[in-house]
């Protein structure tokens, strides 16, 4: 798990008492409050979309669609669950749609074939220092492609559970709430995801 995710979770927990007031203000049409709400969550939403879809264009689409849905439907939010859960239900649905469409179209958004061999389009988003060292860059590129392959082996649902647990630091119970499934089913997804990735990445780790 990335440690910042834990930080984000605790920050969210600390912000909760104020958050209800902010949400009510948004429901009354206060745009400044909406901005505040967006800013509290949009970085982690964008990061989730970026890591799941490995495409800044798709991540941008997910961001826009998700927060527009929030804006249009916030009046239906009744505080039956946390806003985080409500928001992530929206975001994960949009991301899962993207992933499923991509599977159907057999698209591979991140890794493209070039004259120099397969290249990860997202390499430009990774460590700048690696660019200075050709050997390290090559190694990074190979690992990155293998990670893409490993992630490509996962079903959209396994991919989602893994992203939410590993990168976003969410507990499996909360992931079950977001995805409308049981904690046990989320646990099985995480287990299968890890096994598949170890099978592909085994000799690199």
């Amino acid at each position: 798990m990335l440690p910042d995710a834990a930080g984000a979770v605790s920050a969210r927990a600390a912000a909760k008492p104020d958050e209800a007031a902010v949400i009510r203000a948004v429901q009354r049409g206060d745009q400044d409050a909406f901005e505040q709400l967006v800013r509290a969550y949009d970085h982690s939403v964008l990061r989730l979309a970026m890591n799941l879809l490995r495409s800044p264009e798709d991540a941008r689409d997910v961001y826009q669609e998700a927060f527009l849905r929030v804006y249009r439907n916030i009046h239906t939010f009744r505080f039956d669950c946390s806003f985080h859960t409500w928001l992530y239900r929206i975001v994960t649905n949009i991301c899962l749609d993207h992933l499923r469409k991509r599977k159907v179209r057999r698209e591979e958004a991140a890794v493209v074939d070039t004259a120099d061999g397969p290249v990860d389009r997202m390499d430009s988003f990774e460590e700048e220092a690696a660019l200075a060292d050709p050997e390290r860059r090559l190694w990074n590129s190979q690992v990155s492609i293998r990670i893409q392959t490993a992630l490509g082996e996962l079903t959209p649902r396994e991919r989602m559970v893994f992203e939410l647990r590993h990168y976003q630091g969410m507990r499996l119970r909360a992931i079950g709430d977001v995805l409308g499934t049981s904690e046990e089913a989320a646990k099985n997804c995480l287990f299968r995801a890890t096994q598949k990735m170890r099978a592909v990445l085994g000799d690199l780790i």
């Binding site: 990335l2 949009d42 964008l46 970026m50 991540a59 961001y63 988003f125 990074n140 990155s144």
Partner: peptide, 25 residues
């Protein structure tokens, strides 16, 4: 080691992308 490898290849959206998204929204 698997977790560390995955962490190293995690993508963090840049400030420009985030600012662009906010502006479009």
């Amino acid at each position: 080691a698997l977790a560390a490898a995955l962490d190293r290849h995690a993508l963090a959206p840049g400030a420009d992308l985030l600012a662009g998204c906010r502006h479009e929204l």
